[in-house]
Design a protein around this nucleic acid. Structure first.
Lengths: 197, 197
DNA sequence: TATAAGTGAACGAACGTTCATTTATATTTG
DNA sequence: CAAATATAAATGAACGTTCGTTCACTTATA
């Protein structure tokens, strides 16, 4: 029998992500995607059940890659300041290398696809993060906060800075923005100051 | 001549926002919207030039309402801790009263519509916020930071908490989340701790 | 030769938008 | 003060396009 062109599925996935980043979810059409990937519309349905399935597979792949990179060199038993620094560095490194990954997820996060995809992933990631939080509260290296308050202060600022960086545009009066090492370091220190007892 | 049904445009706008929140930008179709608002498709084109114009008008309206409420009782000459508290309270009050406003903006923010709409609004809002920042840095009530690092730490956590609240779902292990006065107060205090010299 | 990959054309449905026509009311007229 | 008129609101049907998906068919390789 004829074997699958391994390269083809990767190309379809990549073109689909770029199309969503460029034109939004409503900009992803199967016929446009087929043309962009240089295949027949019918070929898409060999690799994916339908349009919904395609999108959900993209979300799962992106989330998996991000999780893997973020947990690199990380251990929930780490001291708080060290562990948070590793997390920040991993996330920055990942998203600066894969900026489309973040933009793509931003498009997806507020759609029904996100929840559907998350149901299909193992929830190892939040489990590890939760363990890191509770252990550090016990050890009193971290103020006593709920997971949500913790996440909001520990990571929401980082994601905002990365988004500024990727878009290239910051706030007035300076129209451009670059997330350099100095700003990143300063932001991390401020966040640590907030969260350490 | 026949006068416009004033109530009608408001109903169209409301149904459109709800449709986008419910089904995303790709879920907003002119024919579905017409049916939902109880008018003919052609009627939509009396009030709005086309679909793009409709969406942009919705963004402008939402942004204007949010800005107005956020600046209530606020003055850029305020002391830092007081000014930030007013900002937090205003934003929380607004979005808890208009949760669809936030969800709607989340859908729009990563689309070309957002930028187009922002070009059509007066930029009084960022100007006032920038003034508040620079004056408080001068007065040494606030660490010396760039506008982007400031915004990331001062407001990104708040928006994340509001989003948790509106979605009703937080992080594991507790599946539900309610942003009560205690959590809000704690988060604000942590943010102030981070940003005060 | 068997079998799955891959195709181009075509399907009905839904899309954004337009148009000829009707409807309702503010204004003008007798 | 009623009746006629002007005018913009409002309509339902229809336009051409594009949508997601399918199918009969061809192609390539185990």
């Amino acid at each position: 029998m004829r074997p699958r062109d391994e390269h083809k599925e990767g190309l379809i996935r990549q073109e689909a992500v770029e199309m969503i980043v460029r034109e939004g979810l409503e900009g992803l059409s199967m016929q446009k995607l087929a043309k962009a990937a240089g295949v027949s519309p019918a070929t898409l349905y060999i690799y994916f059940k339908d349009r919904d399935d395609l999108i959900i597979q993209l979300v799962i792949e992106e989330h998996t890659k991000m999780s893997r990179e973020t947990l690199k060199d990380f251990d929930p038993d780490m001291h708080f300041a060290e562990g948070l620094k590793v997390q920040w560095n991993n996330r920055v490194a990942y998203y600066l290398k894969h900026p489309v990954g973040l933009s793509f997820m931003e498009h997806i996060k507020h759609s029904p696809y996100f929840e559907k995809a998350m149901q299909q992933t193992g929830n190892l990631f939040p489990k590890v993060m939760g363990e890191f939080l509770s252990k550090n509260i016990e050890r009193q290296e971290l103020v006593r906060v709920s997971p949500e308050v913790y996440w909001s202060i520990a990571f929401a600022p980082l994601y905002q800075l990365i988004k500024y960086h990727i878009s290239g545009r910051g706030l007035p009066p300076s129209s451009t923005f670059v997330l350099d090492e100095e700003k990143l370091q300063q932001a991390l220190e401020l966040v640590l100051k907030a969260l350490k007892p």
